[in-house]
Structure formats: C-alpha cells, structure tokens
Amino acid sequence: MKPPKFDYHAPTSVDEALALLARYGGDAKVLAGGQSLMPLLNFRLSRPAALVDLNRIPSLAYIREEQGRVSFGAMTRQRAVEFSPVVKARVPLLAEATRWVAHLPIRTRGTIGGSIAHADPSAEYPAVLTALEGEVVARGPKGERVIEAKDLFQTYLTTSLEPEEILVEVRLPVTPAGAGYALEEFARRHGDFAIVAIACVVVRDGQRCTRARLATAGTGPVPVRLRAAEEILERDGLGEAALEAAARRASELVSPDADIHASADYRRHLTGVLTRRALTRALGVARG
C-alpha cells in the first residue's frame, strides 16, 4: 500500500462534508480531483487522519453564466472547462490557460476548485484568478463568505481558507467582447508546471488602453499582480515603447526564488520576456 492509512468518507452533500471536517477538527483533508493530493499521499508527505472526498457531490459541478460573471462549481473538471463553449466565449483567458494545465488525462480528474485551493504558485489557475480579479466562495460552519483573489493566496500552498471550510465556487467576471487576452508560459516540457507564466487581459479603445491586467505564476510564493506595469499601459497606451516599458517594469516587480528548475535572475528575465509576448499576442486578439 502506498498511501498511509486514513478514514475515508464520500459525503453526498456539502453540509455532510462540512460536518465531517468539523468532526476531525483540522486533521482531515478535502479530496477534490486528487491530482496533487494523491501524489503527496503516495509519497506519504501528507498523512491526514481522514479524507473527505467531494467526488460524490454532484451539485458541486457546474458552469453558469450569471450577472456578468461565470460561476464554476468547485468540482468542475478542468476538462469540462477546456471544452465549455461558455468559457471560450465569456472567459477566453481561462480556456487558453486550461490547455497549459498538465495533460488531458490529468484534466479529466483535476478540478478548478482543487487547483485554486491547492495554491501551487507555479499553477495557471491561481494566476488567471488573480489577473481577472475573480473571487471564490467558501462555505464553513459559520456559513458562506466570498474571498477575493488578492486575499486568498497567503504563501506556498497556503490560502486564507480555514481548515473547516470548503471552497465551493469560483467566480470570474465576463471578459468584455473585443478585449485582448493571452497566457504565455515557459516550461521545460509541455504539461510541466510553469517556470514562469504571465496571464494578461487588455481592453483597448483605439491606441488607448482602458484596462490592463497582468499576473504571474512561478515568481514567488503567490501569484503576483503587476499593477505598476499595468499602469504604464493605462497611462501611455499600447505603442511599442509602452509595451517595452511595461515589460521592463514587470521584471522589476517580482522577487522570485531560485530552485532546481531556474535561478531567480532567470525567472525575473522570463517575467519581462513573457509579459512582452503576452501583451503583443493579446493586442493581436483585441479589437477596437
């Protein structure tokens, strides 16, 4: 047997799942798609007393367009996101980013809520949530609360979710028609975690940029919103010089760590290069 022993529960409702989490008082882990948690269990790096498996709660899997946003049940599979016409039309950055999330067999099981709650700083979905200024809904013993992207990610693999809370929904605002978007990523092999990735959205009005959004993956403990680079574009427009200045500023805004995959300097360099590429491609997509 590879994983250590645990009590296994497969509740059929969120209320039942919450009761189980409360009963174990922080010693239980929520099992969503399992594409990160199961490897941790196989290596015995994680030894929870119990697993609360959300896979038998059908009400947690949906994609709905409502009130200017698209809402995703936390257990919506990445594969469902990838092939959703609603996502493609309304949140195209997410559709593009999904193709970078590991491989199709992983996306069969992996979920949007699981990826965000796991909060791997190299993962694509946290960067997209940050760039789009999305939010998540958490449900716990005291009821529901909404957490904005900027308040969600605390540090490596750590969110502001309480141990007795479950992330039940992800909400992303609809991207305005005609807006440009792109996700640029550098990884050693397709499907690996990003060494650096940049998620970007630009809304243009002629040469003017009315809104720019830039967020990173792989440049530190949490996704970084590149606000000062966005401001350059919103102030100076979308000409070559502004794009160049924004990319340069982007690389100054991150303080990445070095690890076995890349040095801090290389990640900073990539941040600038990928920001430039993402903006150029986003402008190609944008109309107006």
């Binding site: 497969a10 399992g34 594409q35 199961m38 490897p39 498996d53 199709l104 067999p105 069969t108 099981r109």
Partner: peptide, 19 residues
Amino acid sequence: CTILLDGQAARSCIMLAVQ
C-alpha cells in the same frame, strides 16, 4: 497507468479504487 474512466483517459495511480 493511464486507463479510460467513463470514457476519458485518467491516471489510475493517483486515484483510489473506492472512487
């Protein structure tokens, strides 16, 4: 270890049998 689970490819080493 890839198999088809309800018609879709999935890794059988990071999924529990009970699931």
